[in-house]
Structures are given as structure tokens and as C-alpha cells.
Amino acid sequence: MAVVTAAIEAVELYRFYRAGDEETLALRGVSIRVFAGELVAVVGPSGSGKSTLLACLAGLDEPDGGQVRVGDVRLSHRPERERAALRARRIGMLFQSENLLPHLTVAGNVDLVQHLAGRVDRPLRDRLLRELGLADRAGVAASRLSGGETARAGLAVALAADPAVVLADEPTGELDDTTELRVLELLRERADTGVAVLVVSHSPAVAAVAERRIELVDGRVRGD
């Protein structure tokens, strides 16, 4: 039987921080796998290691032990320049805020991400904006968008380079219930096309639409 490679995988991740004589263990041997077509929610109390895990998965932070793989390529323990290039090509990042540069237009924000990924694809950009209901807002500065439009434009940026993996950090934390459900529907639709989606969130609505829920407690996986 053929072995299916995870779209993104963490293997025995350890991460600790020192402040003077104090040492904080943020991750204690965390292993997870997310496959193409899955929408997985990572939940847990504040301070459980969720944001640290996401930063390591994205290559924004380096684990002190273990490794992260994106497909068949190791992401961790490489120079920052190599991690950034791999992230730009294969991983879409969706944050609660700060996905957009306010002085650029919606289309300009998407173009910038594609440029960084080395993939300028105007048909893809235009299709994303149509699918997200933003075609008529393409030329509008990000600073002039409504809250719901900003959330959808942030998702367009996360998907701009047609990534294999989308990592989302509390993407619906500041949204009203209606907009939250719409963003989750869009993430679910993207997973249905074969993208691996991992969402860190406290929202019950996120956990409700996910196939799997991974619970972190004190830097360890307590349930999957």
C-alpha cells in the first residue's frame, strides 16, 4: 500500500524560551500531520503553545528540537532565506489582522504575494477576487475596506500563490457571526479542492467545521 505524504507535518517539536534563569517550555514533543483536503482545528487554553506551534509550522520560528516538513521537503533548521522562499511558494498565511498593506489596493496586495512567490498569475488573482466577492473592490485601497471585505481580502492574499497549505491564526476573532461563518465556508471550500488547512482558534464555530480537532495543553498534544 502506498504511503500518503502529509501536506505539512511536525515531528517531535520542542521549543523553549529563556528569560534570565527562567525557562519556559512552549512545545514539548508535539507531533501532528495535516493531509491534503483536511481542515484541522488546533484548540487549547491561552499559553498552551498554539501560536508557537503555528510559527514553527510556518517557518517563522525555529524549533529547538524536532522538525517540520512541507510535503517531502524539510522546512525547519534551514537558513531564514530558504525558509522564507519555501513559505512563499507553498504556505498561505491568514492572520486575524495584518494580512494586508493598507496603502496598497486589494489587487496590489495579491500581486505582491505572487511576486514574492515568483509566480505572477493575473488570471488566478482575478479568479480569487471573483470567488471571494471582491472583483469590484480590486482597485480600492485596503484601508478603505469594511471588516468583512478585509477578512475576505486577507484570505485572497493567503491563497494568492495557490499554496498547498493554509495556516490561519485566529482568523475570525474580530468578525461578527455572519462574516465568521462566511470565512469558514471559504476555508472549507478551499480544503475541498485539496488544500491542507490548519486553523488555530478559540472559536467553537471553527471546531465545528473541522474534520479533526487537535487539543494542546501545556505544550503537549492531549487529543486528536
Rank of each mutant, 00 (worst) to 15 (best):
A161K: 05
A158D: 04
H115W: 14
A58N: 11
G223E: 13
P163E: 10
T5L: 12
F35R: 14
G219Y: 08
H115F: 04
L13G: 10
E82S: 11
G49Y: 03
R190P: 06
D64Q: 05
V209F: 08
A84I: 02
P163C: 13
A208W: 09
P79M: 09
T105D: 06
I214W: 10
G173C: 14
G194R: 14
G154E: 01
L216D: 05
G59D: 02
P171R: 10
D176H: 13
A36M: 03
P123E: 05
L186K: 11
V40K: 06
L129R: 05
L39H: 06
A151W: 01
V11F: 01
G118Q: 04
L124S: 13
L145E: 03
E12G: 08
S46V: 06
T52N: 01
P102Q: 14
H103E: 06
V209H: 10
L86K: 09
L75Q: 02
A88S: 13
A208Q: 11
L57Q: 03
V195I: 14
R74V: 15
G118L: 06
R182L: 09
C56T: 03
G47V: 09
E170D: 02
L25K: 15
S146W: 00
V40A: 03
L187P: 07
G59L: 04
A6V: 09
L39K: 08
V113H: 01
L60T: 08
I91M: 10
E211C: 15
G108N: 07
R152L: 05
A142L: 02
D21A: 14
L39T: 08
V199L: 01
R127C: 02
A88T: 02
R33W: 03
E98I: 06
L167P: 00
G147D: 08
F35C: 12
G194S: 12
R152G: 07
D192V: 02
D21T: 12
L94F: 01
G139P: 00
L159S: 00
D72V: 07
V183K: 01
L186A: 14
A55T: 11
A141N: 02
S76M: 05
A141Y: 07
L112G: 01
F35P: 00
A138C: 13
